[in-house]
Amino acid sequence: MDPRDVIIRPWITEKSTEEIEDNKYTFVVDKKANKTQIKQAVEKLFEADVKKVRTMNMTGKPKRLGRYEGRRPDWKKAIVVLKEDSKPIKIFE
C-alpha cells in the first residue's frame, strides 16, 4: 500500500490539539490498515520516529433527512505517539 492511501487525513479536534504537546498525533486512516502499515506510512510521509500506534474502529452516526434514515460510514482512527527526540509533524502547526 502507498503511504498516502494509508493516511487519509489528520483528525483535528480540541482534544487532539492538546495531545500534540505529548507527541500524540491523530489521523483518519484506511479501515484495512494495520498498526505496522500506519507506523511505516507516518515515518515515510512525515520523517518522524514513531514509538507507538493505537487504533480505534469508529462507528458512523445515525442521521436522518426528513423521513429517510441512514448512517454515516464507519471509519478508523489512529493515535500515533512519537519518540521524545523526534521532530514534530509540521502539518499540525
Rank of each mutant, 00 (worst) to 15 (best):
L82T: 05
Q37N: 03
Q40G: 01
I8R: 13
D2N: 12
I38M: 00
D30L: 14
K35V: 11
D5K: 10
V6I: 15
V28P: 13
K52N: 15
M1T: 03
E84C: 13
N34M: 11
T17K: 04
K35F: 08
E21W: 03
T26I: 03
I8H: 09
L82D: 02
T36C: 01
V42P: 07
P3C: 09
L45N: 00
M1E: 07
T17S: 05
P73V: 00
T59Y: 08
A33T: 09
T13I: 09
K87C: 10
L82Y: 14
M1F: 11
S16W: 04
R54L: 10
T36I: 11
E21K: 03
N34L: 06
E21T: 00
I89Q: 07
R64G: 01
P73H: 00
I7L: 08
A33S: 09
M56R: 11
R71L: 07
M58Y: 04
K63E: 01
S86N: 02
V29Q: 02
N23M: 07
R54Q: 07
E19D: 13
G60L: 04
V29T: 12
Y68N: 06
K52P: 06
E43R: 08
E21P: 02
V50I: 14
I91P: 01
K51V: 13
K63W: 06
K15C: 05
I12R: 06
I8L: 15
L82V: 10
V53R: 11
R67D: 14
W75R: 09
I38G: 07
N34Q: 03
D5G: 09
S86V: 14
N34T: 08
M56A: 15
A78Q: 08
R4G: 00
W11F: 13
D85S: 14
E93R: 00
Q40F: 09
E19M: 15
E19I: 04
N23I: 11
A78Y: 02
K44E: 14
K76E: 13
M1Y: 10
V81I: 10
K52I: 10
N23D: 06
V53D: 10
E69H: 08
R54D: 05
R67K: 13
K77S: 05
G70L: 00
I38V: 12
K90Q: 04
T13Q: 01
I89D: 01
P73I: 02
L65E: 10
V53T: 14
K87N: 12
